[in-house]
């Protein structure tokens, strides 16, 4: 069974090829990292997966079913949750209400939704802030809220878009713990991240792209030592210099 696969994904905006023929597969229960320099097409890939944009060509398979052409909310109902790189808190609602609204994806009564929300807030360490307005949270809290809101929809696969960007080193460590905890609870994770410490320690496998094209895939160690990846991150000069 294919749990989740991106097949020959291509997305162009007019003449600009943002993602060019990218394929990868995520196995159930794994943390799969997606890396690449700025502007390499990572977030575009996410936006194609949850159908904010229609694909130019290619296909996306979730649990043996093509999800191409579905609506964003249907993707969520199927079991793919996502967080946003630029956080989108429902500002004038309390933290609890943010997550409760999300929990209605699986339950219908307000009581059940509240229960799910409180449980998720407990899990993501936000319970103490539940009565605060979402817009009053600092960035670390907002990132957690993004995750909490996605978890409340009971996803099987969670797309995390730069969850650790802008966090302090301590918060990054907490984020690592949280992501592992989510994986251990049975949710597969596809994560975009720039912070190498995070992506290298938690990913089971990593897929690297540059200019919208695949340059490497493998275990963190393999990808970290791949010349194409080093070149993409550190430049051609650096790779040549190493040879001497």
């Amino acid at each position: 069974m294919t749990f989740f696969a991106v097949k020959n994904l291509t997305k162009s905006f007019g003449g600009l090829l943002a993602v060019n023929n990218v394929s990868f597969q995520v196995n159930e229960g794994e943390i799969f990292g997606l890396i690449g320099p700025n502007g390499s097409g990572k977030t575009t890939t996410f936006n194609c997966i949850n159908q904010f944009f229609p694909l130019t060509s290619g296909d996306i398979i979730f649990q043996d079913q093509s999800i191409k052409g579905m609506k964003t909310h249907q993707i969520c109902q199927l079991g793919i949750g996502r967080t946003f790189q630029v956080v989108k808190p429902l500002g004038r609602l309390s933290v609890l209400d943010n997550v409760t609204a999300s929990a209605f994806c699986r339950v219908n009564s307000i009581k059940e939704a509240r229960d799910v929300a409180e449980e998720v807030l407990e899990f993501t360490n936000l319970y103490g802030e539940k009565d605060k307005l979402a817009k009053s949270l600092p960035i670390g809290g907002r990132k957690r809220l993004e995750i909490a809101r996605a978890l409340a929809t009971r996803p099987k696969l969670l797309l995390l878009d730069e969850t650790a960007a802008g966090l302090t080193p301590t918060e990054v460590d907490e984020a690592i713990e949280l992501i592992k905890k989510i994986r251990d609870s049975g949710v597969s994770i596809l994560i975009i991240e720039h912070i190498m410490k995070l992506i290298m320690t938690i990913s089971d496998r990593i897929h690297a792209i540059n200019f919208g094209q695949t340059i490497a895939e493998g275990t963190p160690a393999e990808v970290a030592n791949n010349p194409a990846v080093i070149e993409a991150y550190l430049g051609e000069e650096y790779v040549k210099g190493q040879g001497h």
């Binding site: 949850n50 904010f52 609506k71 964003t72 909310h73 969520c76 109902q77 949750g81 996502r82 946003f84 989108k88 808190p89 429902l90 500002g91 004038r92 609602l93 209400d97 409760t100 609204a101 999300s102 209605f104 994806c105 307000i110 939704a113 809101r149 996605a150 929809t153």
Partner: peptide
């Protein structure tokens, strides 16, 4: 809950599984 979610952020609402 769905109405106010849509008011606050329609894209976030969609990704929360709400048929906006």
């Amino acid at each position: 809950y769905y109405f106010v979610s849509i008011r606050e952020d329609q894209d976030a609402a969609e990704s929360m599984g709400i048929n906006t």
